[in-house]
Design a protein around this nucleic acid. Structure first.
Lengths: 185, 185
DNA sequence: AGCTTAAAGCAAATCTGTTGCATCAGGGTC
DNA sequence: GACCCTGATGCAACAGATTTGCTTTAAGCT
């Protein structure tokens, strides 16, 4: 059972904080479970029991970093909203830090839970953009289409070919997703 | 320097074989470097020195698994070729084993070399399909477009939402990539 | 207030990962 | 074909990480 206000919650909080601080201070490659435990004021075995190993812990922390902090900006029309969102997404995710978080999130995640959560974050943001478009009376593709046409290509290139990713690329994907959505099949 | 016929090559071979055998026998979560070393008739320090850690070793082995074994089948036209290739790709990659290999290839790979190699394999196969289409006089998109429209969506879903991936999905992506390529922008 | 139980602390034992030094096998040179 | 040079491997000792059984703590419930 999860006891939200209790000691477990405090421990989780302390451990997460310790991971973030130490990542910044000593760098991820130097991180060890005992080091995190010491900083969090906890014994290593607690961490091993709760998280299994360092990778799962890092995965947890990474997912928190990847959670969007604010809804996407409203630029007045679908294309502009989607372009803005895609540009920002690409910029954040393709940075060395962003790529590290994505890798960590995927890595310590045998069941795919954390990966699914990341995708859900993106889907939520896109859903907001599309809902606004609907309200304005614009024709809009559905979330799945935008995932396929915009998010997937960016993520694929971030993971598999991390060179030459520019705003222009994000723009083009957004444009093609919106304009092509009603195009002939 | 790599000495292809020498001891290094034999060691590499023995270690790779040991990894594959042990993955099948005890499962990947139980794998350890000392275990692999013992099976390969090698000391652990050799592995640590050559590969750094288990993840990099697994990454190496995974990339070999992901190398295509034969050129894509020729079905007589672009759409059929692409559909066939996409279906097969999705089937192989979305299986639990396939996903494990992809994850391993991506994750034990600080510099992104192995990930790049995976993408290059896919790009080669697609280039073959597209070159055939050109020879037949068919209009064909370029490789990058197919990566964006077909490979990226499949890979994104394999990694981030590993549920409900069917042949029909691969079909649809292939169809949209081919028919939409000349569509209005 | 007292009881129940999941989670945390503690400590011993085990195994993984690291490192310095000696040895060995290939490849190149004469 | 015998001889050195280079880099990779073996060995062994060590440091540190991970596991595990048992005890203790504290949150939630009656």
């Amino acid at each position: 059972m999860v006891r939200p206000g209790g000691r477990s919650a405090r421990v989780q909080q302390a451990v997460h904080t310790a991971v973030r601080e130490l990542q910044a201070e000593v760098g991820r490659p130097e991180l060890t479970v005992p080091m995190v435990a010491a900083r969090a004021g906890v014994t290593p075995s607690t961490i091993y029991r709760r998280w299994g190993d360092l990778q799962e812990l890092l995965s947890d922390v990474a997912v928190e970093h990847l959670r969007p902090e604010a809804p996407p900006e409203d630029h007045g029309d679908l294309l502009a909203d989607l372009r803005g969102w895609a540009e920002q997404f690409l910029e954040e995710m393709s940075s060395p830090a962003g790529r590290a978080y994505i890798r960590d999130a995927l890595l310590g995640d045998a069941d795919g839970d954390n990966a699914g959560r990341c995708s859900a974050y993106a889907a939520e943001q896109i859903a907001v953009v599309l809902a606004r478009a609907e309200e304005r009376g614009e024709e809009a593709p559905d979330v799945e289409t935008v995932l396929d046409r915009v998010v997937a290509p960016m993520m694929y290139r971030i993971l598999f070919r991390p060179a030459g990713l520019t705003d222009a690329y994000a723009d083009r994907l957004a444009r093609e997703a919106v304009q092509g959505f009603g195009a002939p099949r």
